[in-house]
Simulated scan of single mutants.
Amino acid sequence: MGELEQAVLEVLWEVESPASGREVHGRLAGRDLAYTTVTTVLDRLVRKDVVVRERDGRAFRYAPRRTRAAMTAELMHEALEATAADREQALVSFVGEASAEDLAALRRALDDLS
């Protein structure tokens, strides 16, 4: 995903409810973007199945298809699938570079699954 697509998605996660293109554009005001650029990015995210779009009168409202955590997990799973032959080594490497806070969160999650 491109940097602008990521920024638009971050806005949608922040607002926590479906947002119009104008609302997203307004929250990206410091970037000096045209409104049409923002709506083009939103449409691209809809085509990529990252964002859902619903009609609201003559306009559309947009919302992320998944939570930030669910999307991050999906990306992690895709990365592991891409390294299927070295999956264990990839996990060991990931954990070896994790912060103390991340390791504590992983331990809690594994304990909860047990």
Rank of each mutant, 00 (worst) to 15 (best):
residue 31 R to G: 13
residue 76 M to V: 10
residue 85 A to P: 00
residue 3 E to L: 04
residue 68 R to H: 11
residue 20 S to V: 03
residue 57 G to F: 12
residue 33 L to E: 02
residue 17 S to L: 08
residue 62 Y to R: 03
residue 42 L to C: 07
residue 66 R to I: 05
residue 82 A to T: 11
residue 82 A to Y: 08
residue 80 L to R: 00
residue 86 D to V: 02
residue 66 R to S: 12
residue 21 G to N: 00
residue 96 G to I: 10
residue 5 E to S: 15
residue 38 V to R: 00
residue 93 S to I: 08
residue 85 A to N: 02
residue 99 S to L: 04
residue 55 R to I: 09
residue 79 A to E: 15
residue 82 A to K: 03
residue 11 V to C: 05
residue 62 Y to P: 00
residue 35 Y to N: 05
residue 102 D to C: 08
residue 7 A to N: 09
residue 23 E to P: 05
residue 84 A to Q: 07
residue 90 A to C: 08
residue 3 E to I: 07
residue 16 E to R: 13
residue 8 V to I: 07
residue 29 A to M: 11
residue 101 E to C: 08
residue 30 G to L: 04
residue 73 A to Y: 00
residue 10 E to G: 13
residue 10 E to T: 13
residue 84 A to E: 05
residue 101 E to Y: 10
residue 39 T to H: 01
residue 109 A to C: 06
residue 78 E to C: 08
residue 35 Y to S: 08
residue 31 R to I: 10
residue 41 V to T: 09
residue 17 S to C: 04
residue 8 V to E: 04
residue 81 E to S: 09
residue 113 L to G: 00
residue 50 V to M: 05
residue 83 T to R: 15
residue 59 A to H: 12
residue 24 V to N: 06
residue 12 L to M: 03
residue 7 A to P: 09
residue 83 T to P: 02
residue 4 L to G: 06
residue 103 L to R: 15
residue 92 V to A: 15
residue 58 R to S: 11
residue 72 T to P: 04
residue 27 R to W: 05
residue 23 E to A: 07
residue 58 R to K: 11
residue 46 V to L: 05
residue 33 L to C: 00
residue 86 D to A: 02
residue 68 R to D: 05
residue 111 D to S: 09
residue 49 D to I: 03
residue 110 L to W: 07
residue 8 V to A: 08
residue 89 Q to W: 12
residue 17 S to Y: 11
residue 32 D to W: 04
residue 89 Q to D: 12
residue 11 V to M: 01
residue 112 D to N: 08
residue 15 V to A: 02
residue 28 L to R: 00
residue 101 E to Q: 14
residue 65 R to T: 13
residue 55 R to G: 06
residue 39 T to C: 05
residue 81 E to H: 07
residue 82 A to E: 15
residue 35 Y to H: 10
residue 71 M to G: 00
residue 52 V to K: 11
residue 52 V to T: 06
residue 29 A to E: 05
residue 47 R to P: 08
residue 70 A to N: 08
residue 45 L to T: 00
residue 46 V to M: 03
residue 10 E to S: 13
residue 93 S to A: 06
residue 80 L to S: 14
residue 78 E to A: 13
residue 3 E to C: 02
residue 51 V to D: 07
residue 105 A to H: 01
residue 31 R to A: 12
residue 67 T to S: 15
residue 95 V to Q: 01
residue 32 D to H: 02
residue 34 A to H: 07
residue 21 G to W: 00
residue 84 A to R: 14
residue 25 H to I: 07
